[in-house]
Amino acid sequence: MDETGKELVLALYDYQEKSPREVTMKKGDILTLLNSTNKDSWKVEVKITVNGKTYERQGFVPAAYVKKL
Results as ranks from 00 to 15, higher is better:
M1I: 12
M1A: 13
M1D: 13
E3R: 13
E3Q: 14
T4M: 13
G5Y: 13
K6D: 08
K6I: 12
E7Q: 14
L10F: 08
A11S: 05
A11F: 03
A11R: 03
L12F: 03
L12R: 03
Y13W: 10
Y13V: 11
D14M: 05
Y15C: 05
Q16W: 11
E17L: 06
E17F: 07
E17N: 06
K18W: 03
K18R: 13
K18V: 08
S19A: 07
P20G: 08
R21F: 14
V23P: 02
V23Q: 01
T24D: 03
T24A: 05
M25V: 10
M25W: 03
M25H: 01
M25P: 01
M25G: 01
K26V: 07
K26Y: 09
K27M: 06
G28D: 04
G28T: 02
G28H: 04
G28E: 02
D29I: 05
L31G: 03
L31K: 00
L31W: 03
L31C: 05
T32P: 10
T32Q: 08
L33E: 00
L33C: 05
L34T: 02
L34C: 06
N35V: 07
S36L: 04
S36C: 14
S36Q: 09
S36K: 07
N38E: 09
K39T: 11
D40M: 11
S41P: 01
S41M: 15
S41E: 15
S41F: 15
S41I: 14
W42K: 00
K43S: 05
V44Y: 01
V44I: 06
E45C: 15
E45R: 11
E45A: 15
E45H: 07
V46C: 09
V46S: 06
V46A: 08
V46G: 04
V46Q: 12
K47T: 14
K47N: 08
K47D: 02
K47L: 11
I48M: 10
T49Y: 11
T49Q: 10
T49E: 10
V50W: 08
V50Y: 09
V50R: 10
V50F: 09
N51C: 12
N51Y: 07
N51R: 08
G52H: 04
G52Q: 04
K53S: 10
K53A: 10
K53I: 15
T54S: 09
T54M: 10
T54N: 07
Y55V: 12
R57F: 07
Q58V: 13
G59V: 05
V61H: 01
P62S: 04
A63W: 03
A64Y: 09
Y65V: 07
V66D: 02
V66Q: 02
L69M: 09
L69Q: 02
